[in-house]
Amino acid sequence: MMFSIIDIIVYIFLGVGVFFNLLAGVGLLRFPDVYTRLHAGTKCTTFGSIFLSGSVILLGLRMWWFGNTDGSILAIHTGVALVAILVTNPTGAHAIARAAHRSGVKPVKAVVDDLEGGTTKKKSIGKKTATVKKKEEEEG
């Protein structure tokens, strides 16, 4: 009885994970610009990967429960990989979005853009560059 319940849960998790990862692919094709594509590319892949890893962890825990210590390797290592995905995926998306905005990509159909033309550098760095510019002007 216990076998079948865990098997059903694993199949459901696999299905949900594959569905959301597929949705991320469709979103990459359908959305108009880099920011909206990043929406699809980060949220859906992270959520899908949580469910795919969850199914592997469940299978590993079941192996472990029935005395096979290889299951501990499966479960714990997949958990570590899941934490890595959860931390690095939004960080990477943030880096791409920031780089895109700095190199001048405007959001398509934007209603409002508070960042437009604004600088977000630290003031100390800004001052340094300003003084360097002044020196260069005086010298040149």
């Binding site: 859906c44 934007a110 209603v111």
Partner: peptide
């Protein structure tokens, strides 16, 4: 996060967006 994914799924399928920063 679950809500976010159904929201993105809705927007992927219908294509309705109204973006801004």
């Amino acid at each position: 996060m679950a809500k976010a994914n159904f929201d993105v799924a809705y927007r992927v399928i219908t294509g309705k967006i109204n973006p801004g920063i």
